[in-house]
């Protein structure tokens, strides 16, 4: 089996994605769930950079442009998510997600 560097990059990013996924699914703490989602976003960025680096024409730099925009969106997502966490905390005095059921039908 002959693995190219691109294979390693993709394995790395899928590992990171799955760690984020497991964290987001298994934890009850809202902040940890958010951090898991951030990890998944980062794994996606990692793929963009990997495919840009090993693409036949890296001069056009679309991968980098995409990552720049994606980092900006991730920062906005983190800010809004943590504001939500704080407002959940204000209503129920803890941030355990299974207990945030006030709007549950």
């Amino acid at each position: 089996m002959n693995l190219s560097p691109l294979h390693f990059c993709l394995l790395f990013s899928s590992g990171l994605f799955c760690i984020g996924l497991i964290g987001a699914l298994s934890r009850r703490n809202a902040i940890l769930v958010l951090l898991g989602i951030e990890l998944m976003l980062n794994a996606a960025n990692l793929n963009f950079i990997a495919f840009w680096r090993f693409s036949p024409n890296p001069e056009n730099g679309h991968g980098i442009l995409f990552v720049v925009f994606s980092i900006a969106v991730a920062a906005a997502e983190a800010a809004v998510g943590l504001a939500l966490v704080i407002s959940i905390y204000r209503h129920q005095k803890n941030i355990r997600l299974p207990e945030a059921t006030r709007l549950k039908g």
Partner: peptide, 19 residues
């Protein structure tokens, strides 16, 4: 992992210095 390992990815290693 299965999908990645079964795909033949060669990947060019041109230097991206121009960008």
């Amino acid at each position: 992992v299965g999908a990645i390992l079964r795909t033949p990815l060669t990947g060019s290693t041109r230097s991206p210095a121009a960008f």
